[in-house]
Each structure stands twice: as structure tokens, then as C-alpha cells.
């Protein structure tokens, strides 16, 4: 219908107007192609760069646990047709573990904090003050990640390693992973806490929005049954925003998986699987930054290619996690 109308308008236009319309249409179409092309370009160029490493490392990349650039001063040797430094081997199991463990910790802390504070803002704070109060939590999203890293470095690490971790190790030491040396504060739990603060605003903002979209009729029905306000929110409102909570939690997980700077500054950059929850570790994203300088020293280029393989995995992980989150959130909004 609108196509017919616009075609007729088109025919009645002078040639100059028609040309303008054509330029507008084609131009808009071309611009709209850029985002899909960039996404495909990311996949294509990272795969291309990582290809020699994918062939050389094989499946062992994911399940073995040593990142060794080989002998820097040795003569490159040929392995399966690839030039590598003698003794070079690349395995990132410890990075996969570190990435998943720190992100899951972050979500574990951020989920209750985000949902419950959203409940508080949406249902306890009076309407007039709500925007101002919500800004307190949501402004956390505007703090640059490197500033979170700085804060983690100068506040969380000293405070937690002096007071919190020794106490935790004493009290919870019987749980595997919670006992043992608490170290200097660089580690899994510190990163989990800092990451949680970065994920929380995403959860709070979206859950608050979902809560305000719940039908007032259902809420009033709850009150009519004699439920207290908390019971209404807990038993009537929350079940209705369950799907939204799941979606936004996965979105937050995606944010935590790829966070680089804050983790880099508080993780301790260890090259091994942490021995307990306080120990230094590293994540895929942080490792790319911390290792690129030394990887550039490898004359065969295999180290850079292997870092690109980590980047490619991070990209694919990002695409999968964000696709799932968006599909769920799109379904909620209809």
C-alpha cells in the first residue's frame, strides 16, 4: 500500500526530486549495511589471523594448561608445516576457567543486589524522588572500567586482603576453595566483587523498567487479598518479570565475560588455575592486553596468532551470549 502511494508520488515528481529520493534510498541502504558488515568483518579477520594458530594448536588449545612462547633466542623450527619457536605450546584452559569463574561470581553477587535494589527503588521510593534515587545505582554504569580497576586496586585489594579474606578463610575454610593462603588480595574474589558492581546497574535498570510495566490490576488484586506490599512484589510482580530477569542476567554475564581493564588491574595476571578463591588468575580478555607486548617478540608470529585465537573465541562467546540475552529480552517486550 505505502509502496504504491510512494511510487505514485515518485512519478509526479520533477526529475530532481526523484534523483534526491533515489540517493536517499540507496544511501540509507548502504549505511544500514555497515553494522552487519562490521560484525562479519570481525569474524572474518580474526579467523584469518588466528588460522595458523588454530591449525597448530588444535583441540589442545582448549584443554591444556600451558602458555609457553618457546625459547626466544632459539632458531624457529617447523612443526606440521608451521614455523614456531622451539618449545612453544599454547593452552588456555586456565583462562577459560578464570573467565567463567570470575564472571559467575560477579553474576552471583550482582543478581540479588540488582533485583532487590530494583524492587526497593520501584516500590519503596516515592515517585517524585525515584529518578534521582535510581540514578545512584545507574550512574555506576557511567564510571569508566579503568576507574573501577583503580578503585579495586587502591580500596578493595588492601581492605579485603587485610580484614575480609583472613576472616573468611578462618570461618569458611572448611569449604573447598575457601581455605588456604589469602595472598595479597589480587585474585578471583576481588575481581568478582569489582565486576559485580559493573554488572549491577544493567540488571537494576532493566528490572526496574520491567517492574513498572507489570499491570496495576494484578498488583491491586494482590493487595485486595490482604497481602503486604512486600508479598505483592515478591509473589505477584517478580514472577511476572522472571523472563526479563533471566535475559538481563545473561546480558550482564556477557558484560562480565569480556571486561578487560578492571580485571587486568585486580586479577594478579597469573598463568595458572587459581588454587583457591583468593588466588591470582587471569581472564581471556585481560590476557590479550597483558601478553600482546611479549607476543610481538615472537619472530614467527605464532604467539600473536594464538592471542587472536583467544580474541576469536571471545568474539564467538560474545555473539552467542548476547544473542541469547537479546532474544529473551525481545520476547519479553513483544
Amino acid at each position: 500500500m505505502s509502496e504504491i502511494v510512494t511510487t505514485r508520488i515518485d512519478q509526479s515528481l520533477p526529475a530532481a526530486g526523484r534523483a534526491k529520493r533515489w540517493v536517499f534510498r540507496v544511501g540509507l541502504g548502504v549505511v544500514a549495511l555497515i553494522i552487519p558488515l562490521v560484525l562479519l568483518g570481525l569474524l572474518a579477520f580474526l579467523t584469518l589471523q588466528a588460522w595458523p594458530a588454530i591449525q597448530f594448536n588444535g583441540f589442545g588449545f582448549l584443554v591444556s594448561n600451558d602458555w609457553d612462547l618457546g625459547s626466544q633466542y632459539g632458531t624457529p623450527v617447523s612443526v606440521d608445516g608451521h614455523q614456531v619457536l622451539p618449545g612453544a605450546s599454547y593452552g588456555i584452559l586456565f583462562l577459560i576457567f578464570g573467565t567463567l569463574a570470575s564472571s559467575l561470581l560477579a553474576v552471583l553477587f550482582a543478581l540479588p543486589a540488582g533485583v532487590l535494589s530494583a524492587m526497593f527503588i520501584a516500590e519503596v521510593v516515592p515517585q517524585g524522588a525515584r529518578d534521582v534515587v535510581a540514578a545512584v545505582v545507574e550512574l555506576l554504569a557511567a564510571v569508566p572500567s579503568v576507574v573501577f580497576g583503580l578503585w579495586g586496586y587502591v580500596v578493595v585489594i588492601p581492605v579485603f586482603s587485610h580484614y575480609v579474606y583472613p576472616l573468611m578463610a578462618d570461618v569458611l575454610g572448611f569449604i573447598p576453595g575457601f581455605g588456604g593462603p589469602v595472598g595479597a588480595g589480587y585474585g578471583l574474589l576481588t575481581a568478582g566483587v569489582v565486576l559485580a558492581l559493573m554488572v549491577v546497574p544493567i540488571i537494576t535498570a532493566n528490572v526496574r523498567e520491567a517492574i513498572s510495566a507489570v499491570s496495576r490490576g494484578d498488583v491491586e488484586a494482590g493487595f485486595a487479598l490482604g497481602a503486604t506490599r512486600f508479598e505483592v512484589v515478591w509473589k505477584v510482580v517478580l514472577p511476572q518479570v522472571k523472563t526479563a530477569i533471566v535475559g538481563v542476567t545473561i546480558l550482564g554475564l556477557g558484560r562480565a565475560l569480556g571486561e578487560t581493564m578492571a580485571v587486568l588491574m585486580v586479577s594478579g595476571n597469573a598463568l595458572d588455575i587459581p588454587s583457591n578463591i583468593y588466588s591470582p588468575f587471569s581472564t581471556m580478555a585481560a590476557f590479550i592486553v597483558s601478553q600482546l607486548d611479549s607476543a610481538l617478540q615472537d619472530p614467527t608470529g605464532m604467539a600473536v596468532d594464538s592471542l587472536s585465537e583467544i580474541g576469536l573465541m571471545l568474539l564467538i562467546l560474545g555473539i552467542i551470549v548476547n544473542s541469547i540475552a537479546r532474544l529473551i529480552m525481545w520476547r519479553v517486550r513483544g
Partner: peptide, 23 residues
């Protein structure tokens, strides 16, 4: 395009940096 834009927003920024470095 809308879906891809939403996905691209969530791609870790270090991956974009690596892409910029390579290309």
C-alpha cells in the same frame, strides 16, 4: 540490522581493539 546492532554493543571492547590492531 537491529539484532546485529544489539549483539555488536555487547562484544567485548578488547576484541574490537584486536581487530583494529590486525586490520
Amino acid at each position: 540490522v537491529r539484532f546485529m546492532a544489539d549483539v555488536l554493543v555487547g562484544i567485548p571492547s578488547i576484541v574490537l581493539g584486536l581487530f583494529g590492531y590486525i586490520t
